[in-house]
Design a protein around this nucleic acid. Structure first.
Lengths: 267, 267
DNA sequence: GCCGTTTCTCAGGTGACTCACAGACGGCTC
DNA sequence: GAGCCGTCTGTGAGTCACCTGAGAAACGGC
């Protein structure tokens, strides 16, 4: 609604992130805290020389409840790896000083078990990446959505055992289920086919059940950071989701006029 | 009620000063003091070059019991961030010297954990504030209502952990409850559907139970600062609320003729 | 390079919401 | 008890937020 907001009375243009922003405190309402075995928050190292992107990631991951450190070059990354001992690394493959592969090798030498999430340009050489991720790592192409990065990072942490919390990747809200690993979605036992964007949107909603999410929040979280389009894509995709999920059932997706959308169990 | 009839658009007396000029003493009657872990008041930095707006915000936030500092430009903001060490920042994205994003980056570099509430013009939102809300930050479009700003700021402080007070977002008065996250309202267990304005009005009342609120105060607090309409919208909306909340129950909303309205438990 | 799929823009339609106006109601004062 | 004034509320109009169909453009698999 960024654009919509024309509210007369109070400028209550339903900004974006009202409530949801999820923080440690609120986060309890969300899916799973995802702590390490010793009860502390997982540590994530972000390596990217674009400071605005590094900022964005840092904020988003912190918001997720993780402890985050950021650095802009390969040398700093190696230093941080030693000092900070991260449970996972987000690594831009294009760095100013060292190239991604070199950084990776040295990281591996330092901390062999630490999973890495690569950030790469869309047109980067595909097979090169394939080699990189062979060891159970993962990658995301720029421009990415935060939902995507967070989801993959969660996956890596979960699999590496850095996170002790329940290993299940199943989100459940009422009779609606979504498996983050297999990407399967069911309503009342019936399988539902979703497109990539629909899936991501639904995942975001299901990770924040019963909470009003503004269109701006959704846009910031589910669409890639450089999306420059109309804000009403959100309405459009909500509409698609309703057709696939709520059709023939008691609706779970509700509109809070002037505020956003809420997902909650039909009951 | 001297002010009532005379409330001309611009006139809008009763600036920010919500209920009484706010003394710590009075404040105790309100919801939650919302202190920091060390018992001191949260510190909020306001950055806006329109002095009248900055003043308005300063007064309203001070009234809330917070320690406030205001500055009109980006350079001052950075200085203040260092010296004042705020727990949250209210940042106008349109500043005379630096643009909002630059200020944001430097703020982040300085104090990475500090949540930011952005103020933006309605139509400036068009060119995306991409990612601004992604990290748990929030924003409000001008013209805003004070109730809106305060509520969102409370949310940010609550979530960032700067405020030690209970993290729940539930307001309770008698058998009436209002959840600021899900926007759900219940009376005696029965769910109640409210419009955006009704919700905001009720939130204001519930944050000031057993206290007489004049129409002027309500108008100043719940409606946006540039509202130019008739003062009796308040009566109208009180009337709406009564129908939805008091219908079939012992009334909780009472008129204090010549003074204002009070919300209190039915008891 | 072609075809099905997916993403997104655009624009029309509709119901919800906000608010002005004005008459009815009721307490208070003299 | 009459009149005044503050408050309440029905009506109606204009606006706004949201929904959704249709089609253009981009993508991806073969």
């Amino acid at each position: 609604m960024t654009t919509t907001a024309s509210r007369t009375p109070a400028g209550r243009a339903t900004p974006p992130s009202p409530e949801t922003p999820a923080t440690p405190a609120t986060r309890t309402a969300r899916t799973a805290p995802l702590h390490r075995a010793d009860g502390t928050a997982p540590r994530v190292l972000v390596v990217d020389d674009e400071t605005s992107l590094a900022d964005l990631l840092t904020m988003a991951l912190r918001y997720e409840g993780w402890e985050v450190r950021a650095t802009g070059d390969g040398a700093g990354a190696l230093r941080a790896a030693r000092a900070f001992r991260p449970d996972a690394v987000v690594l831009d493959v294009m760095l100013p000083d060292l190239d991604g592969l070199t950084v990776l090798h040295r990281l591996r030498a330092e901390r062999p078990e630490t999973p890495v999430l690569f950030l790469t340009a869309r047109d980067a050489v595909e097979d090169r990446i394939a080699g990189l991720t062979a060891g159970g790592d993962d990658y995301v192409t720029k421009p990415f959505s935060l939902e995507e990065v967070v989801a993959r990072l969660r996956g890596l942490l979960r699999r590496s055992g850095a996170a002790s919390s329940r290993p299940d990747s199943l989100l459940v809200v009422g009779d609606l289920t979504l498996d983050e690993d297999s990407h399967e979605v069911h309503r009342a036992g019936e399988p539902i086919r979703l497109t990539a964007t629909e899936f991501e949107l639904l995942r975001y909603l299901m990770r924040n059940p019963r909470r009003v999410l503004s269109k701006a929040q959704i846009l910031d979280r589910v669409w890639s950071y450089d999306f420059g389009g109309q804000a009403n894509v959100v309405e459009l995709y909500i509409s698609y989701l309703r057709r696939k999920i709520d059709a023939g059932h008691e609706p779970m997706i509700h509109t809070r006029r002037g505020a956003g959308y809420v997902l909650k169990p039909a009951a």
